[in-house]
């Protein structure tokens, strides 16, 4: 869907995919966050429509103030593309409905600006979170944060790419296609609520 054609009516859920909106000029997600499409997404959130931001989508949500915190350049100063192990904490809401607390997930990351910083750690306390497992933090994120949701879990931002971890054939040795559960959660949520 081309961003200018986005009409929020009639959608059950919205996913802002990864990529490099506006070439990441200025800061990742900074320009996209100020577009009309994102204003319309903010309206969706007010109406309780599930919104997921993946990678650049997460950066846009944070830039737009729709999720707390900020995503800064990786500690290494370099882009990083690798598979990581994650653990879910306090999962809830449409995107994490089928995920259990403490469940380990594996997915790849691919970003240059993914170091999460929470202005106030209390802001994400109790909110659904995805952490990198110890030793798997690829970017120096505070508290190993890889993803964070709104308190009710209707809005979720993820630096890792669940859509790249859906088919087993794409998983390297030792990793599972656990991105699948995010989309299965949504399917179940839209059918039966969350």
């Amino acid at each position: 869907m081309w961003h200018r054609d986005f009409d929020p009516r009639g959608w059950d859920a919205v996913i802002i995919p990864g990529g490099f909106s506006y070439g990441d000029w200025l800061r990742a997600g900074a320009i996209a966050a100020r577009t009309e499409a994102v204003e319309r997404i903010a309206d969706c959130i007010d109406r309780g429509i599930p919104v997921l931001g993946i990678c650049n989508g997460f950066q846009i949500l944070v830039e737009a103030g729709l999720l707390p915190g900020a995503l800064l350049p990786n500690e290494s100063g370099r882009f990083v593309c690798r598979w990581v192990k994650l653990v879910a904490r306090d999962p809830r809401g449409p995107w994490l409905k089928l995920v259990e607390d403490g469940q380990v997930l594996t997915m790849p990351v691919a970003h240059a600006e993914g170091r999460y910083v929470a202005a106030d750690p209390r802001g994400i306390e109790g909110a659904p979170r995805i952490h990198y497992l110890d030793g798997w933090n690829p970017n120096g994120s505070e508290m190993n944060i890889a993803g964070v949701g709104s308190r009710n879990g209707e809005v979720l931002g993820l630096m890792p790419h669940p859509e790249r971890a859906v088919d087993r054939v794409l998983c390297p040795r030792g990793f599972e296609p656990s991105g699948r559960i995010i989309f299965e959660s949504l399917a179940s949520s839209l059918r039966e609520g969350w």
Binding site: G18, R78, F79, V80, C81, R82, E163, R164, D167, P172
Partner: peptide, 17 residues
């Protein structure tokens, strides 16, 4: 690792494997 070698979800055998 500085290159996104997976975008497009086509890469079955990735660098290093």
């Amino acid at each position: 690792e500085q290159y996104d070698h997976e975008v497009g979800i086509r890469t079955v055998l990735k660098p290093g494997y």
